[in-house]
Design a binder for these strands. Sequence first.
DNA 1: CAAATAGTGTCTATCAGACATTATATC
DNA 2: GATATAATGTCTGATAGACACTATTTG
Lengths: 253, 253
Amino acid sequence: MPYEPSAFPPFAVTVDLVVLTVRRHALCALAVRRGEAPYEGKWALPGGFVRADEDLDSAAARELAEETGLQAHDTAGGLPGAHLEQLATYGDPGRDPRMRVVSVAHLALAPDLPSPTPGGDARGARWAPVEDLLVDDASTRRHADDGDKASLAFDHDQILAAGVERARSKIEYSSLATAFCPPEFTVGELRRVYEAVWGVALDPRNFHRKVTGTPGFLVPSGGTTTRQGGRPAQLFRAGGANLLNPPMLRPEV
Amino acid sequence: MPYEPSAFPPFAVTVDLVVLTVRRHALCALAVRRGEAPYEGKWALPGGFVRADEDLDSAAARELAEETGLQAHDTAGGLPGAHLEQLATYGDPGRDPRMRVVSVAHLALAPDLPSPTPGGDARGARWAPVEDLLVDDASTRRHADDGDKASLAFDHDQILAAGVERARSKIEYSSLATAFCPPEFTVGELRRVYEAVWGVALDPRNFHRKVTGTPGFLVPSGGTTTRQGGRPAQLFRAGGANLLNPPMLRPEV
DNA sequence: CAAATAGTGTCTATCAGACATTATATC
DNA sequence: GATATAATGTCTGATAGACACTATTTG
C-alpha cells in the first residue's frame, strides 16, 4: 500500500514513564494518582502528550523532569541524572476509551531521591514497591483488602511489568545497576541494588570478586566510607564499560 | 500536565518492517523501491499506515503478509511462518518531510523464501545483503560507484541497523535462530545461520556439542538428509525452549 | 581413492558457586 | 569482647575453545 499522506487516521501520541528506583531495599516505581476520568482516582504511570515539535526522547525527558526533577543522562545539566531509554510502544485500539492513543513507553532508572513525594505536580504521587503494584493477574486481585494494591489505570500494569523485566534482565549484562546508585557508592550498596531488583540474596564475596574483577565496570574514587558499623568500604564510581562480559548471572533454577 | 484529550497534536502512525532472512550464506533484508516523493526511486523498508481500528502488531503482521506472504507465528494459519516482534519507535519531527509521522518499527525473521522477488506488490522489491545496505556513516558513502548501495530513505538506515543488531544479539540467548530455518533442518544449516548473521566462522564440533547439549533447544525429527556430499545429517525441529542458558557466545575480541 | 560433511571425544583455561579467613569499624 | 561489614583466598564443578579422530556420503 503506497503512502497516502492526505488520508491517514489521526492518532494521539503520548509518552508513559516507568521510573524505577531502589528505596529501603525494595524496587519501587513512581505512580501518580489520576485527577480526572477515565480511571479517576486510580494510580497510573506518569506521562503526557508528545508536543507537535518534540522528539519522543525529548518528551520523555521533559515528563521525567516535570515529575521528578531528574535530568536524563544524555543531556548535560546540573540536575541529578537518571538513565532513560525507550521501552516499547502500546497502541491497542480501545486502550484509552476516549480516543485512539499510541503511547511510547520509556524506562527511567534513578538513584533514591531525597524527597519522599516527588515534586512538580500537585496531584498525588508516590514511590510504590513494584511487588505491591504488580499483582499477578493469575493470582486473585483480592489478595489484600487494600484497594491501593489493585491494578493501575489503562494498560499500565502491562507497561510496568515490561519495564521491570527490562531492568531485571538488563543489569545482568550491562553496568546499568549503577544508575540506581549515587555518583559514589560502595560494592555493598551496589550489591543491595542487585538484590532489591532481582529479589534474591547474593553472596557478598563472590559479588565483590565479580564486579571488581570486571575491567571498566568500577573505578575506585579514592575515598572510603563507613555507613553502618563495619569495616569502612572503598568508594567507587561507574566505569566506562557499558557491557558486562561475561554477564552477572541472576540466580535462578 | 493533565490530559487534555480535546487538544492534542495529531500524528500519523505507521509500521515499518525490518524483514531479515539468510540467503546464500548472507544476512539479507527486504527493501522496496519508493514509487513516489519524497525519496522517490530510493530503497526503503516496507511499511504503511496503521488503520484506525487496528492493533500495532496486527498492522505489522498485515504489512508482512502483504509484502512477503509470510504469516506471523503467533497467529494460526497455513502460510509459512515468520517471527515478528516490535523493535522500537521513531518519531523525530522532520523524519518525514510531509507531516509528523511516528513509526513503530518491527523486526521479522523469516526462512529463505522460494520467490526471489517477494510478491504482493507491483513495486520493486528485493532481498539485499545488509552488508550492502548498511554502509557505515563513518566510512565514506562514496564507497563504491553503485548508487544502490547508498543509504535508505527516511531514517530507515537507523531502523535497519537497530533490527540487525537486535537479531544478532538475540540469537545469542534465545532459540530465535531457528526462525531463519525451514521447519526441519540440520545442525550444519543452523550453524550456517549463526555464521551468516554474525559474519563469523564457528567451530562445527563445538557448535554441535552446544546446540545438541542444550535441553529443549533441538528435537530430533527422526529423518536424515544428505544435502551436499558428506555424511547424512540428522534432521531436527525447534524445541520448546525459548531461552538459551547458558547463551551461545558470539566470538568477539 | 580424495574430498567433504557429520558426529564424538579429549584436554585446558576460565569462571561461578560454596565457603574459610582476615581486616576494621561500631556497640 | 561481640557483632557487623569489607576484602581476599581456596577449592570444585561446569563449560567454552582448540583440536584429534571416526563415520558416511559424493565424485
